[in-house]
Design a protein around this nucleic acid. Structure first.
Lengths: 233, 233
DNA sequence: CGCGGGCTTGATTCATATCAACGATGGTGG
DNA sequence: CCACCATCGTTGATATGAATCAAGCCCGCG
């Protein structure tokens, strides 16, 4: 049981990093493992918020649906990310798997006592919340003040950074990065249409800034130009 | 000294509500009072994040500036709101007063021990963080998926709700509400231009949905129509 | 081999930005 | 107290970036 946590790819996530190795069994005792296949739903808008999750592997997305079907993707969730901040008894968003996913699931009310026992864990939890706030505000800036090209460029750089970090790849490594989501998902994240996403990618490619070996991968050929295209910030 | 907290308009804010009356002196002991005049700066991008704040009265705004001067307002901060979530040693945003403001200032490192002593306070702090996350995600949806009219309508309803709550005004009261910010501020919050804001307001007014007694106040004449105009969500 | 879903590309439309002029309002100094 | 000016807001004309409408492509799969 302990081994599960020891070998967990999300061991160093904020949630778990606050617990010392020798106390990991406490975490393991209150957690259950969970696997999801692509398109499976983890949380539906309106679900009771009595469980929280840690992403062990895979990619998920957090979405909100407007009454008339408009969809906004609020966040993509990758290895190490925490899911479950809620000020209410109910979740007000959906979470859905994009790829095969492994998650760690905690009952909220069992997790909370640990915060009293391990102030370090609680401290990290707060930092985690702060990071989520900052990520949301970054997206606010992007949606409020960047044009289509800038949004796309910033998104790709963000995707790369997340994968770099998760895989601990050194900064100057040239690599082909994954795009785990569809064009539609990207559009619904960046507040654009699928056609605009496609056009902007084509333009970045034709300018020699990107390579797009497959629909779901990219390589940055000219990083300077891409950073430049991401613009103000 | 204790009296200051007892009579504080933000006594029931999340930060302070976790502390029982008889322990208020602990909060008072580590807090200092602060007044700001309109346009004064509380936090500058890059400032050390070693103080946090509670808004006692007045309105402030949290902004981010792009390299080329583009500005996005990330949040308006009203009575009872907390300022200071940061995952880092530095703040990555500005906070500026819109009106005369009173604030309560805490040293972060003096506040944190209270969380251990008062788990209820810590619990409320987490809830507060969750609310900030939800507010940011609401704005993400607005910027990503609503048109100019919908943004404006949603914003006005939000302004009303915040004031209603702060002043504890019953739900069906007809009233003139304040608009503490300029048209430029509204534009920079909603990801629009000042001209568009102006036009949308004029249209809502000419349709008989709003009254605009002064530049900085509004009255909702036809609430149903306004809610309708706010659209999907 | 044909079919379908996801994607790209092109033509056109439309919402909002931009550019430009004018109007209101509030503060200051004569 | 009034007149002036600066600032902020409104309104109109035009430009433009992205949405919408419309084919057609590509690749995996039955």
């Amino acid at each position: 049981m302990e081994l599960v946590c020891y070998r967990c790819p999300a061991r160093s996530s904020d949630l778990c990093a606050g617990v010392p190795d020798n106390e990991l069994k406490l975490l393991a005792a209150i957690s259950t493992h969970l696997k999801l296949r692509p398109e499976e739903t983890l949380i539906l808008d309106g679900d009771a918020s009595d469980h929280v999750y840690n992403v062990v592997s895979g990619t998920l997305m957090m979405t909100r649906l407007g009454a008339d079907g408009r969809r906004q993707i609020l966040a993509f969730l990758l290895t190490g990310n925490f899911i479950g901040f809620s000020s209410d008894q109910l979740y007000r968003f959906n979470v859905e798997a994009l790829t095969d996913c492994e998650l760690c699931r905690f009952e909220r009310k069992k997790l909370e006592p640990l915060f009293e026992a391990y102030p370090e864990m609680e401290r990290r939890f707060r930092q985690m919340a702060a990071r989520v706030i900052e990520a949301s505000l970054d997206l606010v800036f992007t949606l409020g003040r960047r044009n289509a090209t800038e949004r796309m460029a910033a998104f790709l750089l963000h995707l790369r950074d997340a994968q770099r970090e998760a895989a601990e790849i050194p900064k100057d490594t040239q690599a082909v990065w994954q795009i785990p989501m569809t064009r539609t998902d990207i559009a619904d994240y960046l507040g654009l249409t699928i056609e605009t996403v496609s056009r902007v990618l084509s333009r970045l490619k034709s300018k020699g800034i990107l390579r797009l070996p497959t629909l779901h991968s990219f390589e940055i050929v000219n990083e300077t130009a891409l950073v430049d295209a991401a613009g103000a910030d």
